[in-house]
Structures are given as C-alpha cells and as structure tokens.
Write a protein that binds this DNA or RNA. Structure first.
Lengths: 191, 191
DNA sequence: ATTAAATGCATGCAAGTACTTGCATATTAG
DNA sequence: CTAATATGCAAGTACTTGCATGCATTTAAT
C-alpha cells in the first residue's frame, strides 16, 4: 500500500466516522487527504472501493486478536474486569462512530459481516470462558448463552452510550462502571 | 395536521430509518407518500423541516411517559423485569434504526436532545427507584449511579444488538435474556 | 542523465440534488 | 353556483455529485 493510497483511505474513514458514508464526498476526501480528486480514481475503482479496502485494514478495525485474552487468571473478578477493559480499550468512541457511519445500505451487505466480527469474538470468548469455569468447578451451572449476553450487552451498551452521549447520560466513569458491574455480576453468579 | 402532511412525515421518517437522512431524497419521499414532489415544499419549509416536525410527534418517538412505570411493586425481581420489558416494548428495532438514521451532522444538534430523552427517562426512573428502595430498607446501600448504568447499559445493549444483528449475535430470546439478567442483578444486589 | 511512473491541475460531463414556478384540475366551503 | 383551497404536472433553477481526460510537472528508477 503506497503512501498516497493510505492517505486517501485514512481520510475516507475519518470522514465516514464524522459524517457517514453518503454525506462524505470524493471532494471532501481529496481535500482532507491533500491530494487531487482525480487521484482517488487512479488509485481506486470508486468511492465504495476505498471504504472496502479501508475496513480490511487492521488500522481501521478494532485490533481484536485471540491473544487479547491471554491474561486469564481463572478467577471471576479479575477476569471479568480484564474482559471489559479489553473491550473498551479497543472499541473507542471513534470506532463506534465509524461502525455507525458504515451502516449505509450501499455498503451494509459487505461491511456488516466485518462489523459483527468484533462482538462475536468477545461473545464466543466469554462463552468458552464460562464453560471452562464450570468444568473447573469454580462456578455453578448457568444458561451461559444468556449470561454472556447480559455481560456483553452491558459492556457494549456502556461503550456505545459513552460514545454517543459523552458523559451527558453516563456520568459514571469507566473505572467506576467496570468496578460496580463486575461486583454485581460476580455476586450474581456466585450467590 | 392534515392527512397529506402526515403522509409526508411518515414517508420521511420511514426512509430515514431505512437509509439515513442524507440518502433520503425529496423525490423518494414524494414517491413513498404518494404525492407530488412540490407538495412537500408547499407544506414544509424544506427537507429538514419535515424531519423536525416528525421527531416532535408522539408517533415517531418511543412513547415514554411517566405512567410507564406505574406498576411498581417495590419488589426487586418483578420491578426490574417490568422495567426491562417497558423499555423493550417501546424501543423497537424500528426506533433504534430511526435514531441512528437521525445521526446526521445536519440534524444532530437539533435532534440529539430529543433522542437522549428516552434513555434519560429510564435512567432517572431507575435511580429514583433504587433510592426509594434503600429508604424502604429493601436493599442495602450502593453506588446507585453506577448500578443504574450497569442495568440500563445491559438493557440498551441487548435492544441495540438485537436490532442491529437480528439473532445473529443475540441468539438468546428477549424473555430468556430478561429472566437471566434480572436473576443476576437481583442476586448481585441482594448478595 | 534519461526514462518511466506518479501526481497535480484545470476542465468537462451526465446525472442527481433540493427547491421553485406557472398553470391545469380537482375538491370543498359558503 | 361560486370562489377559495389543495393538489398534480411539467418544466426549470442553481448547484453538487461521482467520475473522467489531456497535459504539465514532479519524483524515482535505471
């Protein structure tokens, strides 16, 4: 990937994050990338092509690889805290807004599977984690699928609400939120 | 509100829900409303004006009035279930998608306060509820602000994820989700 | 130093955008 | 019946869109 193409992709993704796909024009992109508009079409097939190459890049995806969860201690409290922190470290407000900006009918069929990968990775990690914790006899039996949805929904929900309403709704800080949530979950699962 | 204007508003809001504000053209609106395009501009100042009148209508807002929460029993389990059901009855996938469709820079300053009203209503209800429950001696002391965020984030998160990924991520049904979540919360708060 | 590739720039184009106008035709109210 | 109102229709405005091209200039490889 040459430097110019990368600048074009970066400009495109930033604009989509800020204004959405449809509202982002090729003129905007060229201006922000500091290149001439026609350069976009020499490097890429069309506007959509820029985005599709962008979402394939690590840089523009939350860096969700299996080794995120390496530090598992098999102890409910620190592990859930690690899990929520790992999510929030990666799913920044910028990433949330980009995901929403990519929800355009012209793109959605092609981008949705990629967008879904992030929550899916977290959900399947958590599910496996609880199953192993049960095997190890550290927690009792549960409807793990529902339990995982409760914990993940809460993590996702807080992240999204913070990105959208920026302390207007969620006055609780990230640290307080995680501390309180994990306490409720741990007591709720053990009790 | 005459019938024609209402048809125009309804068409506009449906299209924004499906395609977003920028991608929704006045030609689209006219076609879906079954009126001539110029009629839009006889009835409304401009495209934005249609949306702003739309978001003011009960019909296009989640019907969140104080009497939603009338059936409070002052018993943690049924009350939390009632709360989550009340939210999910109103915040349908259509409403979630409309809220996202309204996130256009051209509109957001004017629509954001309205969009925020719904979560705010639920958050402040829950906060007051827990404070009274503590006064009544039915639960111990907590950082209620954080606790409310945990419960609301989870409710919001599940609703949003269901609307976005439609059973692909959240295989858990609404009933199972509420049952499991409330159990965890109740045990987590009481334990 | 010579050559080939990459880029900037100006300009153009067909189509699409929100919005407007003038006029004909319905529907309704007094 | 008459007059006001609502709407349809066709055409047009001024502007923007994604996309394209020819030509000059810069950059980089040989």
């Amino acid at each position: 990937m040459d430097e110019t193409s990368q600048k074009i992709i970066d400009a495109t993704m930033s604009l989509i994050r800020d204004k959405g796909y449809v509202a982002t024009t090729t003129k905007d992109i060229a201006r922000l990338a500091g290149v001439n508009e026609c350069t976009l079409f020499r490097k890429f097939k069309n506007k959509k092509d820029i985005v599709l190459q962008g979402v394939e890049q690590e840089k523009w995806r939350a860096n969700v690889t299996p080794d995120i969860f390496e530090k598992v201690q098999w102890e409910l409290k620190p592990d859930l805290e690690m899990f929520m922190n790992a999510y929030m470290d990666r799913i920044t407000p910028d990433f949330v807004n980009l995901s929403i900006g990519l929800r355009a009918p012209q793109l959605y069929d092609e981008t949705a599977p990629l967008i879904m990968k992030v929550p899916q990775a977290f959900v399947s990690f958590l599910t496996e984690y609880f199953e192993k914790m049960e095997e190890m006899g550290k927690i009792g039996h549960f409807d793990f699928e529902s339990l995982v949805m409760t914990i993940f929904s809460s993590t996702f929900g807080y992240t999204f609400l913070s990105a959208s309403f920026n302390q207007n709704l969620a006055k609780t800080s990230r640290e307080e939120f995680i501390k309180c949530s994990v306490k409720v979950f741990v007591d709720g699962i053990s009790g």
